[in-house]
């Protein structure tokens, strides 16, 4: 069972701000999804190796060679606010 508090907690983890009326419908959706996963849980997978990736590839590397970084003027264009070449954000520590 998914409670309203579960929905609010999960939303909080993902920084999603819900209206009160959205909580109820999401609760039902989440229950359906979790219910489906529970169905899968019943399958016997003892001899099946866990899939850690959908692509049948392994060992994709890059050599340790430096390539140019972005120009800072370019980078800082995406900053909402900035100071002294740094991204300026609301204070995160009291």
């Amino acid at each position: 069972m998914i409670s309203e508090d579960d929905v609010k907690y999960v939303a909080g983890l993902s920084r999603i701000y819900l209206q009160d009326h959205e909580v109820g419908s999401l609760q039902k959706d989440l229950e359906k999804i979790i219910g489906y996963v529970e169905k899968l849980q019943k399958l016997d997978v003892t001899d099946i190796e866990p899939t850690s990736h959908a692509l049948p590839l392994t060992n994709v590397f890059r050599d340790d060679e430096i390539k140019p970084s972005l120009d800072r003027t370019e980078t800082m264009k995406i900053a909402v606010d900035q100071r002294d070449g740094a991204f300026k954000v609301p204070k995160v520590i009291e």
Binding site: D81, R83, D84, G85, A86, F87, K88, V89, P90, K91, V92, I93
Partner: peptide, 12 residues
């Protein structure tokens, strides 16, 4: 992160 009085500053 560097914490100033009024904000935090981020260097990536």
């Amino acid at each position: 992160l560097v914490h100033a009085d009024d904000c935090s500053l981020v260097d990536y």
